[in-house]
Amino acid sequence: MTPHVSTAARSLFSPSLAARRVRGAIIVVLGLLSVVVALGTLAFLVADVLGRGLPWLSWGFLTSFDSRFAARAGLKAALAGTAYMMVFTILIALPLGVMAAIYLEEYAKDNWLTQFIQINIANLAGVPSIIYGLLGLTFFVRWMELGRSVLAGAMTMALLVLPIIIVATREAIRAVPGSVRDASYALGATRSQTVWHHVLPYAFPGILTGNILAASRAIGETAPLVTLGALTYVPFVPENPLDRFTVLPIQIFNWTSKPQAEFHDLAAAGIIVLLAVLLLLNSVAIYLRQRLRRRY
């Protein structure tokens, strides 16, 4: 013990206090610098995109289809496709995710199966999104013969965001105090009645926030949809769930891949729209969380 302590002490206390203080200051400066570099890059990115894209933003840009000519190209199909796919994604993922979370929080016993399910969900959150694309390609596009459709895209996205929804919903359910459940049981309610009438209403704000965050993740995802084959020239608005489609990030990818600089500016304009949508969604999530927060 004694030699161990003395070497540790020697490394901790260098003879000059001034030198030690300088070292401390350097670490603080480096830490701040890292934050500044990260946030500065973000600020630079946004400023650059705004500078390139703003001149291209117009009503016509939002309401025309893609075109070979940059001046005539627009986001109509991508906006419609994103909205359409997101509606289906949430319709599939929300009930599944909330039900899974209710099961894990309110029903599951603490046994190996429950543990396995939990580890599984944690691992799924770490699977690269492009792997989900290959999953969707095999099961939804080929085996279920849905083709490269809105529905196939939405189902793939639903699986991708499911872990996010489950984790957020579980946290929301866990925050509901046990006394609420006890009161419900004391009045003779069954477990499902307790969950439906008491736990879920209390957990609602948290569930809503989690779903909005999941949606904003899905809106920005590109890779799985590229794998499904959504990257095509789509000069129409999808009308039913089996129509082909394109989405905002894919349209941006498409324009970025073109060599002409004017298409890069167009991509920047698309990025402004995409970031604006995400900013809006996240602001709504933060607002709702503040607004609906209950105190027990």
Binding site: P95, L96, M99, A100, I102, Y103, L104, Y107, A108, F116, I117, N120, I121, N123, L124, V127, I131, Y132, L134, L135, L137, T138, F139, L159, L162, P163, I166, R191, S192
Partner: peptide, 25 residues
């Protein structure tokens, strides 16, 4: 109700299996 909820919770296992099958085959 418990059965249906349990099935929903198992979707994660099905997804993992699906990934293994889709890639494996």
């Amino acid at each position: 109700v418990a059965g249906v909820l349990g099935l929903a919770a198992a979707i994660g296992i099905f997804t993992t299996l699906g990934i293994v099958v889709a890639l494996g085959v």
